[in-house]
């Protein structure tokens, strides 16, 4: 890991954070009435990933052209870190014809075949699909890999277990990523899960399982690097569980009354912490940090503008694309 890697990861985390901060603002900005999540320019549920950037950035730093990701309902950080076009993604979130899915998918169903990126609103169900993508890569003889992402709550789904078994028995180039943000909506993992370590569960399938405890992008980077190398070289699947942080509610509108750790959430924010560590090491200055943020803001501004200026689908479009 070079200083450039670290700066690039910091920059990407800031880019994602600035994006979501702005989406959050725009999402709530024009809701009339304010409680109606279906109102406004960005309608529907909104699941933001703020605080979980290290998981996406540390993993995606190792991915190359042709590598695939299946993300869950909280997908923005993985999408952006994997190179999904910010304009097209934003237009999709705004439900516009220029969006990734022409306004048919929305924020939980982003599809970008060029980057082999997809997500599903049904948790853990991207895992089997990722296995199939990995099977295809293996059959085609490439050294591409697939990353399957889910939260710790999703690891109680059968799809999670079926996929781990399938990937192990077929030796598929998959990296299973579990983002453990402590909360399955409102239920803490120890209340729902007999074996709370998914590294253990991976071991049960003969898959190396690693748990990265401290939401540190460099620790994720190292673990993911080892897992991606392993997959590319035909050694098979690995699982990385990142103990990460949900800075916001499960969805926008979640008051989080169930959550006793809210007071300390901000001090655990991984981005300022990483900035401080890079500054202490002399690898980042305040001025640079300001520039990185400003560049991110400019890109985000342009993406929002692109979305807002884009055409709204016509009612007739609803009947298109059922079949190819």
């Amino acid at each position: 890991m070079t200083s450039l890697d670290r700066l690039a990861m910091y920059t990407e985390m800031v880019r994602i954070r600035q994006y979501e901060t702005r989406i959050l603002q725009e999402y709530h900005g024009d809701k009339t009435p304010a409680w109606d999540i279906g109102a406004g320019l960005i309608p529907g549920e909104m699941h933001l990933s703020a605080g979980q950037e290290p998981a996406a950035v540390g993993v995606c730093a190792h991915l190359k052209k042709g590598d695939a990701i299946t993300a869950p309902h909280r997908p923005h950080h993985f999408a952006l870190a994997h190179g999904v076009d910010m304009n097209a993604m934003t237009a999709e979130i705004y439900g516009r014809t220029t969006g990734l899915c022409k306004g048919k998918g929305g924020h939980m169903h982003l599809f970008d075949p060029e980057n082999h990126f997809s997500c599903s609103g049904i948790i853990a169900q991207g895992y089997p699909v990722a296995c199939g993508q990995a099977l295809a890569m293996k059959r085609k003889g490439t050294d591409n890999v697939t990353v399957a992402v889910a939260g710790e709550g999703a690891a109680n789904q059968g799809a999670f277990h079926e996929s781990l078994n399938l990937a192990a028995v077929w030796n598929l180039p998959v990296i299973f990523v579990i983002e453990d943000n402590d909360w399955a909506i409102s239920v803490p993992r120890e209340a729902s899960t007999a074996n709370t370590s998914n590294a253990d569960r991976a071991a049960g399938y003969g898959i190396p399982g690693v748990r990265v405890e401290d939401n540190d992008v460099e620790a994720v980077f190292e673990a993911a690097g080892a897992a991606v190398d392993r997959a590319r070289s035909g050694e098979g699947p690995s699982l990385i569980e990142v103990h990460t942080l949900r800075l916001l509610g499960h969805f926008e509108g979640d008051a989080q009354a169930y959550r006793p750790d809210l007071e300390t959430v901000d001090e655990r924010d991984p981005i300022p912490r990483y900035a401080a560590s890079l500054m202490e090491a002399g690898e980042l200055t305040e001025a640079q940090a300001d520039d990185i943020k400003a560049a991110a803001d400019a890109e985000v501004d342009a993406a929002i503008q692109f979305a807002v200026d884009s055409p709204i689908p016509t009612p007739e479009d609803a009947l298109q694309h059922v079949f190819a």
Binding site: P113, P128, V129, C131, G132, R139, T146, S163
Partner: peptide, 23 residues
Amino acid sequence: DTPISETGFIGAGIGAAVEGLRP
């Protein structure tokens, strides 16, 4: 031959199809 794991292998079929195979 697959394991008795329909969610797993039907999902895998979808993933393979998405990548251009015809399972």
